[in-house]
């Protein structure tokens, strides 16, 4: 297993988060809130993906296995977690008081707004990946276990930041239109695809992976990235479809009222 020192605490945190989410959602439903079951399932699936990537068995050579783990903990898992609207759930559960006010203050702070500005979130996420694979960072992370662990944590959080910034399902600071989010997804996806193709030819500096392993890993990164990207694109498309339908229904309702009756 190639997992670092943060794997065990992170796994524990994921299990706790899944339990808290499920119990919290059940409490919301008991008091009469509409909280679809599919969100519970999506959140549990996200936690499972992260845990699998951190501690589960992953097939393939060393580089392919690393890519698979990265795909699970830093891309698929965070995307699923973001879609389950964890912040909305917590804000609904917390009673009015200091913790809720504090959380809202953080969510609405300029720093959070800046980080959740889609291009910034994309730069943090994909930029970090470029640094990892195209500088000596990879080698350093494999020599110093703590650095490797911190990187793993960074990748998970950056993935979550990116998914939240693109999907905008939770109440955070600043509104952001669909075009900017879609273009950010396009740019991030392209940067990811280019990095994957370049890894096909040459691995991270200071490493000597077998060519077959490197190629399998690069292709897994390329097509796995596609899958997560399509998932995020579907989230955006559903948002647009629903919002357009609501707007038209409102317009139709207004048009149905005779002009004199307004």
């Amino acid at each position: 297993m190639t997992t670092g020192p943060v794997a065990a605490p992170l796994t524990l945190a994921c299990v706790c988060a899944a339990v808290v989410y499920t119990v919290g959602a059940a409490r919301l439903r008991r008091r009469g809130d509409a909280w679809p079951w599919r969100r519970d399932c999506v959140f549990a699936a996200g936690c499972a993906a992260v845990v699998w990537g951190l501690a589960g068995p992953v097939p393939g050579g060393p580089f392919t296995a690393h890519t698979g783990r990265h795909l699970l903990t830093a891309m698929a898992g965070p995307a699923l977690l973001a879609v389950a609207r964890p912040l909305t759930l917590v804000l609904r559960l917390l009673p009015p008081g200091r913790p809720r006010r504090g959380l809202l203050r953080v969510a609405h702070s300029p720093a959070a707004g800046g980080l959740l500005f889609p291009p910034v979130a994309a730069a943090v996420d994909v930029g970090g990946l470029w640094l990892l694979y195209r500088t000596d960072l990879w080698e350093a992370a494999h020599r110093h276990a703590l650095l490797g662990g911190l990187l793993e944590l960074h990748m998970l959080l950056a993935g979550l930041l990116f998914a939240m910034a693109v999907c905008r399902l939770d109440p955070v600071r600043g509104r952001c239109g669909l075009p900017l989010r879609a273009v950010t997804l396009l740019a991030a996806g392209a940067a990811h695809a280019v990095l994957a193709k370049s890894l096909y030819l040459s691995g991270p500096p200071g490493t000597a992976f077998a060519a077959a392993d490197l190629r399998a890993g690069a292709q897994l990164m390329y097509y796995g990235g596609d899958a997560v990207e399509v998932f995020l694109a579907l989230v955006l498309a559903v948002q647009w479809y629903a919002a357009t339908g609501r707007r038209r229904a409102r317009q139709a309702a207004r048009d149905a009222v005779p002009a004199g009756a307004r």
Partner: peptide, 13 residues
């Protein structure tokens, strides 16, 4: 190629 490939996926959705 990376841009076009990503754009294809987003265009399909």
């Amino acid at each position: 190629d990376g841009l076009l490939h990503t754009a294809e996926l987003l265009a399909l959705v």
